[in-house]
Design a protein around this nucleic acid. Structure first.
Lengths: 365, 365
DNA sequence: GGGATCTATGCGATCGATTGCAGGTTGTCA
DNA sequence: TGACAACCTGCAATCGATCGCATAGATCCC
């Protein structure tokens, strides 16, 4: 029964291998492997399965994923490329991806791609060298060289949050156009007519799509949609600068920002000019990041389901990784929701009108 | 020169292996491996090194990390266990860890341990099955079963942000006691005497140490340090609840919270009671998370260098992973810094005194 | 000029799990 | 009883890189 001339001499502290279990039970390691694999268990007699499982339990056996990966060519590892690991904005997305993937036995390899495209490609190649089974990119620009690289490497890839202009791979995004439309319509309903837009970077889908949404909504209402300043990055300082330019150039009563950070940058600029938000200028953000409900004033913004987007991206990726046939390129769009808080209000002129109307009504009584 | 009867028939699309390079150059794969390894390159003649490198370049060769891991037993993978992936609070720490590790050729496997200790251990075991070379735990409780498991598995481990009571493994934390002392001293200097504390969970080091810091600072000033309510979690709702209890029980003029989220919870409770912060009650937070400079009122808090802590944790772990001898258990402490903003002010009584004094001075003129 | 030393490279086992194929045993049916 | 199927289990190659050991050739020294 015993394997004769066993050269393996596992030191007692080392983690046990299949061979150790097989030796202890008195079967071949292949048999032990099958007994421990739910998908192959039916091939083995119930009695042997039982004994192998018991022994595995006793020894604290854990299948060596590395060895299995080498043999099968599948690492059950997914690479997630973020523009900036330290940026809290991406945490919810990462959380969604992680929970959906770990439920299916995959682990997440996070990587900070940085902003440089060359560096991002280098990072992806490192992930590839680790034999990741798939990739989630939160870094996509509108025409992204990283995506090209992924396509060439034939690795299942899903974009999240940002998409390319041309649909080359699956993506999960929000409906940026209608999200911004919600912002603008809200402002118009409040009575605003001179509405400015702080646009996001032009190389990002969110930047241009939201701008397009702004222009469309303004055009539909028969208003001038040309009061636009583009911020160089999604940051408070860029937002502040853009807001300054906007205020210097156009007589706006409201600002629809492409992003919450840009909106908060606008807050800063308004404050230095001693302008009140919302009394002098209304501001709408985008994304509904954590804590914007507690800033001063609480920010009206467009809520994005980031955790859900992450989960959805993971699901799409799972499909693509398990499939043997090529899967269709799809784009999942999650609906944005306007969250009205205190940074938006009727413009002074309209407010004046309303006051007059109220006064008139009072006199008439 | 050619390997005879080569059974390997690499399909053109497959990623090239060492064997492919060796075949192309006409050397053994071991030679090719050495030529590509900077540490072993000197063993090989310059001319062969040159040819191998050129061929590797041409074929787009990337060393298969999985295969190398199997052979060497080192995965160059580090597991990072977070209490909650989706929580933005941990992003800066993760960023610090990631950047420091990737600079040394390691990749980060993130895992969401959840709050349940059993689940955390299960998660760690999955990381272990992936043969991670080391672990960073951001989840540590004061007496942590996960740490015990890591110790038993003899895997290099570093704690970050939270530590255990007993120093069993290396850790990187802030000086929680003196951080809270800064808060309290600041309030005392403003003239507050009746200061309450919203403590963090008792099973976390940050919770008890900051509480201890609070009590110590109050005692040093000869004040009553017993006005303490413990929150069940680091969350806004828990902070709000604790604040309610605190206000119902003690006549405080200021609150030192164990954490920014607790402080923001206090904001909410104060607002529902129509109390002004800072006019009626001053509030100090802890951590200086993003955006607390823009809440209403901007939060006075204690700044923590989270990115630096993450980097430091990574450095400690690197040492431990590369070392062959057991390394000493150390605890790195980063100094906290008070950031004074608008949520703290002199208490009404003192302010009254000051007004009177000012008035008196005016009359005297 | 013969042995010693050094250098560059080849050889083949190894890490641990997986899997196609083969072989042995038991059961079934005519 | 013989043929065949069904069911278990074993065998050995395989994934790709690594490294201790062996060896061929070059160099050196007295």
């Amino acid at each position: 029964m015993n394997r004769s001339a066993s050269t393996a001499r596992p030191s007692p502290t080392r983690t046990p291998t299949l061979q150790a279990i097989a030796d202890a039970v008195g079967v071949h390691r292949a048999t032990a492997a099958r007994a421990l694999d739910p998908a192959k268990r039916h091939l083995i007699s119930a009695e042997v399965v039982e004994r192998v499982q018991r022994e595995a339990q006793r020894l604290g056996y854990r299948r060596d994923v590395i060895a299995a990966s080498l043999r099968t060519g599948r690492s059950r590892l997914v690479g997630v490329l973020l523009p900036d690991l330290a940026n809290p904005v991406f945490a919810p997305i990462l959380g969604g991806i992680g929970s959906a993937l770990s439920a299916h036995g995959y682990s997440v390899l996070v990587a900070d791609g940085g902003s440089d495209e060359k560096q991002q490609i280098e990072t992806v190649e490192q992930l590839l060298a680790r034999r990741v089974d798939g990739l989630v990119l939160a870094t996509a620009t509108r025409r992204d060289a990283v995506v090209t690289a992924c396509l060439k490497a034939k690795i299942p890839t899903v974009l999240v949050n940002r998409a390319e202009d041309k649909e080359r791979v699956a993506a999960v995004v929000t409906d940026d156009i209608s999200g911004m439309r919600l912002s603008v319509q809200h402002l118009i309903e409040l009575g605003h007519r001179r509405i400015g837009h702080i646009a996001g970077p032009e190389n990002l889908s969110t930047g241009v799509l939201r701008r397009r949404g702004f222009e469309a909504a303004m055009a539909e209402a028969g208003l001038d949609g040309s009061m636009v300043v583009t911020a160089q990055a999604y940051s408070r300082s860029a937002g502040r600068q853009a807001c300054a330019t906007l205020l210097d150039t156009y007589p706006v009563t409201a600002i629809a920002a492409s992003n919450d950070l840009l909106a908060l940058g606008a807050y800063l600029e308004l404050r230095t000019r001693d302008l009140s938000c919302p009394d002098d200028v209304s501001v709408v953000g985008h994304n509904d990041m954590p804590l914007v409900d507690m800033v001063d004033p609480p920010l009206t913004t467009v809520h994005i389901e980031q955790v859900t987007m992450g989960e959805e991206a993971a699901r799409l990726l799972l499909e693509r990784m398990e499939a043997d046939a090529p899967t269709p390129v799809v784009t999942k769009v999650t609906p944005p929701v306007l969250v009205t808080r205190a940074s938006t209000f009727a413009p002074a002129a309209v407010e004046g009108q309303m006051k007059r109307r109220r006064a008139h009504a009072a006199r008439a009584r």
